[in-house]
Nucleic acid binder design. Structure first.
Length: 913
RNA sequence: GCCGGAGUGGCGGAAUGGCAGACGCGGCGGACUCAAAAUCCGCUGCCCGCAAGGGCGUGGGGGUUCGACUCCCCCCUCCGGUACCA
């Protein structure tokens, strides 16, 4: 085998590694301080097989793992499959074949393809989320969620057993108390409106709905009230937000999560309804729930209370009916009905044009006793804050637009301050929490017309109701508070509201509770059953399946078809499955299933202890390996998966199952690999690259190396088959450096010798070791490969290639091209795989040269170079520069006014004339 | 609109205050060969020039600096996310 031939080398070493268990990870790290848990986002095994995007991140983690093993680390590097999900079920609907059959076929394909690429996974740890034993522990974790309530004071989840039931609740009877407890669980039932997608026959999480359409398939989604399982992720909003600080994650992903959680601070304020009798006077405590006859709003700008000229409630607000006067009844009824038919899509599309209707009622502004009208409008969302707002049209763009349209009064209460003129006009400025950045006149305005980009606005235009000013300034028209800066005013008015019992500081989140049930077959069944009475009617009492009876496996079903109604397919399950007896009571099982996210919420834990039949994970193992040190995957999981799994992890932390507050210490997003035409790869565009074909044509090492050489890991970059040929050629050059490619058998090239390396050979070799080692630490694989190419180019020209240097090169290349690495290592006479061979060390002493070239600039332009001894001081360097005839020529007739000397690098002579 | 990322040769990219374009692709030329393939060697940002050499050049405009792809301010374009969240 004279030529470099990956087709024979690669399968040989893959078989060896497998038989040898080369990459089997120890139960516990040998040295607790030298452990690496490197995790890939496990794939969904689709019917299309592996995409070339998959091996990008997988190769990156594999390189780090292989290098770290050689550096003496204990490494866990697992792989598995996120195998529940819609496509397998849709296939089942079409063919009648059980989704498990199709899923297992797909997994087999993925496994073959992954093995073909030579990743150093510990395959003994392979799991699929659909494995019955895995489902068992997913259900077990659900039971933990069900058994946990959130203690707000302590900001942590605690067992239900530690939840004290108040006397007055107990007095209401057992049934009431049980319901009271159920309402406090982290896993609870709710019949709030949900996103029902008729085409998919299921409800979707808010996160799965994009612009009113399903994320998968783009089908229309409508709102419908349905009984659903919810997870109380909002309880953890603060911790999910705060926890981001300490994580080594891309700033973009952190920002995305923060934005998704959407924490804002402001105040809740009670507005007394006009004519309801009481006034806002008198100091009392601010009640947890608004008193009767009180409309409660949430605002981030309590400092603009004096400018509230009307109020708006959402069409779904419970006060709609009571506030509507008889002469407004018809108009309100029509408006509310119209709003209820609007899908989210309609609301989004119509967002530009404000609509609304007057209720006929008024509320009293607590700060000045003025009555203001209450309107209904769908620009106020029932799901955020209190579902009601105070409108301050002078200082909020949406209120402004609404006020303009319906002729409501606009009253300025914030003076932009400083100059009358503004430097810069921008078109919005809701960021009312942001203080002025201090630049004089650089204040954000919102002009009524949007054509101009640069404009000067007289300050009076604000009070004229001509412009919106949503920034921070100084209070005006606010009684005793006039002249108070916005930030200070917020604090003062909040204190005033608290004192008078009409308001208090409040925090709100955009994050909603997680809708956790799906009307699907191919998902984890809930370990839950509903108690039935003698007539077979549900009593409303929930029974959990005992831990020892887990898992609740899916029944066999012949008919997988959804029926267009929201009842889940499992309703058609055999009676023996559907109606179990729990604690001697006849029950009906929960027939919803968990969403696909469930399995991926904790797989990183199971990888560490995949065969444990007593617990999801052994605590000693968990403590030794967690957290995940390096997590690489696509940016598409920036919010959903990464937020959900952090939430579960925090609950498991509170319940003592895990010991780290966060699961993933370092996160890296790989960029997208585009087609050769620079567009996203897709079947319809016909630009999909098949990894099987690339491996057949060029080999797995070439595919790996190419994907790492394309550019920085996080960047998107287009595929180029010529580039694959290029790295394939590089691998051939490495081969020929050491192997006589004209011999019949694999034998070393004549140039390889046991001779001592020359000083230059040592310098080049050690410079490469240093650069490659550092580049791997930085995940800068493209530059590491470039440095190895330089080394190969250098030694190709050398007629003597010392073994010492060749071995270093083989070890450096091996994490990138592991098959070639082991093959050459064997050719160099070693009996064992290089997988645990010590990583080459570099010696700074070899890097030094006797002389160094100093760049000479004249007035910043490069005009020449001089050679000086390494370590020469400034004076020596300057002397050498001035002695240089070419430089002297350039300086003739000119006066040097400044001399800049950077030792070892550069001299800049600044001249005059 | 808001948040995040990015704009460098024909192409992918390198350089994060000190020689812009490492490395690779593509292109051009050469060696080997009867020839081709394979391999090896050299050249390759643009403009002027026979050459020596000179000028220009990192999306645009301004600034800081002896010196800016790199730092600061403003603007443009592209990609991703998100959007009546009060």
């Amino acid at each position: 085998m004279p030529r470099y031939n990956p087709a024979t080398i690669e399968p040989k070493w893959q078989a060896f590694w497998e038989a040898d268990n080369t990459f089997s990870a120890p139960r516990l790290p040998k040295d607790p301080d030298k452990k690496l848990y490197a995790l890939d986002m496990f794939p969904y095994p689709s019917g299309d097989g592996l995409h070339v995007g998959h091996p990008e991140g997988y190769t990156a983690t594999d390189i780090v793992c292989r290098a770290r093993r050689m550096q003496g680390y204990s490494v866990v590097h697992p792989m598995g499959f996120d195998a529940f999900g819609l496509p397998a079920e849709e296939h089942a609907i079409k063919t009648g074949e059980h989704p498990r059959v199709q899923t297992e076929k797909n997994i087999a394909t993925f496994r073959r393809q992954l093995k073909m690429l030579g990743f150093s996974y510990d395959w003994d740890r392979e799991i699929a989320t659909t494995d019955v034993e895995y489902v068992r522990w997913t259900q077990w974790i659900f039971l933990q969620l069900f058994d946990t309530w959130f203690d707000k004071e302590q900001q942590r989840g605690r067992p239900i057993a530690e939840l004290e039931i108040p006397q007055d609740v107990q007095a209401m009877g057992e049934d009431f108390a049980r319901r009271w407890v159920d309402e406090r669980r982290l896993a609870f039932q709710s019949s709030a409106p949900v996103n029902w997608c008729p085409a998919l026959g299921t409800v979707l999480a808010n996160e799965e709905v994009i612009d009113g359409k399903s994320e998968r398939g783009g089908h229309p989604v409508e709102r419908r009230p349905l009984r659903q399982w919810m997870l109380r992720i909002t309880s953890y909003a603060d911790r999910l937000s705060a926890g981001l600080e300490k994580l080594d994650w891309p700033e973009g992903v952190k920002a995305l999560q923060r934005n998704w959680i959407g924490r804002s601070t402001g105040a809740e304020v009670d507005f007394q309804l006009a004519g309801s009798g009481q006034t806002a006077e008198g100091s009392k405590a601010f009640p947890e729930k608004p008193a009767d006859g009180v409309l409660r709003v949430y605002t981030t700008r309590p400092d603009t209370l004096f400018g509230a000229t009307y109020m708006v409630i959402a069409p779904e607000h419970p006060y709609v009916e009571r506030l509507t006067t008889s002469d407004q009844a018809a108009a309100v009824k029509a408006y509310v009905e119209a709003a209820s038919f609007k899908s989210d899509l309609d609301r989004t599309e119509l967002a530009k044009d404000k609509t609304g209707v007057f209720t006929g009622s008024y509320a009293i502004n607590p700060v000045n006793g003025e009555p203001i009208p209450i309107w209904i409008a769908d620009y106020v969302l029932i799901s955020y804050g209190t579902g009601a707002i105070m409108a301050v049209p002078a200082h909020d763009e949406r209120d402004f637009e609404f006020a303009k349209k319906f002729g409501l009064p606009i009253k300025a209460v914030v003076d932009p301050g400083g100059d009358l003129e503004v430097k810069k006009i921008v078109y919005s400025g809701y960021k009312t929490d942001q203080p002025d950045d201090g630049r004089i006149g650089a204040v954000e305005y919102t002009p009524a017309k949007k054509e101009e980009t640069q404009q000067t606005i007289p300050r009076e235009a604000i009070s004229d109701g001509e412009y919106v000013f949503a920034g921070a300034g100084v209070a005006i028209n606010s009684g005793e508070f006039d002249g108070t800066p916005t930030a200070e005013f917020k604090t003062k008015i909040t204190a005033w509201l608290t004192q008078n019992g009409v308001g208090k500081e409040a925090v709100n989140y955009k994050l909603r509770d997680w809708l956790f049930s799906r009307q699907r077959f191919w998902g984890e069944p809930f370990p839950i059953a509903h108690e039935l009475d003698v007539d077979g009617k549900p009593t409303g009492q929930i029974r959990t399946v005992a831990e020892e009876d887990l898992p609740v496996d899916l029944p066999h079903l012949v008919d997988f078809k959804p029926h267009g109604r929201p009842e889940p397919p499992l309703d058609k399950a055999p009676k023996e499955w559907l109606y179990p007896t729990i604690d001697g009571v006849k029950c009906k099982r929960e027939t919803n299933t968990m969403p696909q996210w469930a399995g991926s919420c904790w797989y990183y834990l199971r990888f560490l202890d995949p065969k444990n039949s007593d617990a999801p994970i052994d605590p000693d193992i968990e403590k030794a390996w967690m957290p995940v040190d390096l997590y690489i995957g696509g940016a598409e999981h920036a919010v959903l998966h990464l937020l959900y799994s952090r939430f579960w992890h925090m609950v498991l932390f509170d319940r003592g199952v895990v010991s780290t507050p966060e699961p993933f210490q370092k996160l890296v997003n790989q960029g997208m690999i585009l087609g050769e035409n620079g567009e996203k790869m897709s079947k319809s565009r016909g630009n999909v690259v098949n990894p099987d074909e690339v491996v057949r044509e060029y080999g797995a090492d070439a595919l790996r190396l190419y994907e790492m050489f394309m550019g920085p890991l996080p960047d998107s970059k287009p595929w180029n088959m010529d580039g694959v040929a290029g790295v394939r050629n590089f691998l051939g050059r490495v081969w020929r450096l050491m192997i006589d490619d004209r011999a019949e058998e694999v034998s070393l090239a004549a140039e390889v010798s046991d001779a001592e390396p020359t000083a230059e050979q040592l310098r080049v070799t050690h410079a490469t070791i240093k650069a490659v080692t550092e580049d791997i630490d930085k995940l800068s694989f493209n530059t590491a490969i470039a440095r190895m190419m330089e080394l190969v180019n250098f030694f190709t020209k050398e007629t003597t290639r010392p073994r010492e240097c060749m071995e270093a090169l083989v070890l450096l290349v091996s994490p990138f091209a592991p098959h070639l690495g082991d093959e050459l290592w064997a050719a160099l006479g070693h009996d064992e795989t290089l997988a645990y061979e010590p990583w080459p060390a570099f010696d700074e002493a070899y890097l030094a040269t006797d002389t160094v070239d100093i760049v000479v600039q004249i007035s910043g332009k490069v005009r020449g170079k001089v050679s000086v001894p390494t370590g020469a001081d400034q004076a020596t360097i300057l002397a050498a520069v001035k002695a240089d005839p070419k430089i002297g020529e350039q300086l003739a007739g000119k006066q040097v006014v400044k001399e800049i000397v950077v030792p070892g690098k550069l001299v800049n002579l600044v001249v005059k004339g």
